[in-house]
């Protein structure tokens, strides 16, 4: 049983400051983190590993610094980590598709439902590309034999308190939301080990995956930054004012 977890690394918003006047985002501390939903997807995979002994492979596309995310994944318990080392803003789906082919027998792909910064959601399209079943927005995920079961919020329920369960036969793609299983903390010793092990992260390139230049072309061009209008403070109303408003 092989589980593939797709991770994205993004700038930690804690180190950023938004200056509306200047229309800019200032990065005070350039620190990176694993996309929170992806981290929960990894936790879901690790829980399956704990229960079934499945192999967990973590993968990411990005520049050299992306290795940090993968070393963290290894420290957390992933058995392998693969970095597709390409510093491009290309759609990651092409790389993931090629990676699945190259790995062979991937039974379950887990990733976050969307990225915190861009809102990008690769799951649904990827499921089509690799011809697997798709289960979205999981808050819990478990395997039973060759069937994957997830629990997700029931969008039909207005109180947002109801959940329902769905299942699919493997192979499947599952996306996990930020309400997914709470990630564990790695043992500090595992962090040290995984950073000191030169082979903790396997490095691949587009060429290794048999992709040509067309896969590397940017899909997005940045033209500038803009912000939604600033919200005004609420106004405290007196009882009389409220009464007046409510009187037809």
């Amino acid at each position: 049983m092989r589980l593939l977890v797709l991770l994205r690394q993004l700038l930690d918003p804690a180190g950023m400051l938004v200056n509306r006047k200047a229309g800019k985002v200032f990065v005070n501390r350039e620190e990176y983190m694993i996309n929170p939903a992806d981290k929960r997807a990894l936790e879901a995979a690790l829980q399956i590993k704990d229960a079934t002994g499945a192999e967990v492979v973590a993968a990411a596309v990005g520049p050299a610094r992306t290795e940090d995310a993968l070393r963290e994944a290894r420290a957390l318990g992933a058995d392998r980590a693969i970095l597709i080392k390409e510093d491009v803003a290309a759609p990651a789906g092409r790389f993931y598709e090629a990676l699945c082919d190259s790995l062979g027998d991937v039974d379950l792909i887990l990733t976050g439902d969307s990225a915190l910064d861009t809102g990008e959601a690769v799951g649904p399209q990827l499921a089509e590309m690799v011809n697997m079943a798709f289960l979205g927005n999981a808050v819990q995920c478990a395997l039973e034999g060759a069937v994957v079961r997830i629990v997700r919020r029931d969008v039909r329920d207005a109180t947002q308190r109801a959940y329902n369960g769905v299942e699919a036969d493997l192979p499947a793609v599952v996306t996990v939301t930020r309400s997914g299983p709470t990630p564990r903390y790695p043992h500090g010793g595992a962090i040290i080990e995984m950073y000191r092990d030169p082979e903790a992260v396997e490095i691949m390139t587009a060429a290794d995956l048999g992709l040509d230049d067309s896969a590397l072309q940017p899909a997005v061009v940045e033209r500038g930054q803009s912000f939604p209008p600033e919200r005004e403070f609420g106004k405290q109303m007196t009882v009389e004012e409220i009464a007046e408003r409510m009187t037809p």
Partner: peptide, 23 residues
Amino acid sequence: GDVGFFGVPFPREYGGMGAGELG
């Protein structure tokens, strides 16, 4: 203890972090 707080500078073989005085 599960994360390793109690054995930071000690070797991994004893269940420490192996992170030395720096860690």
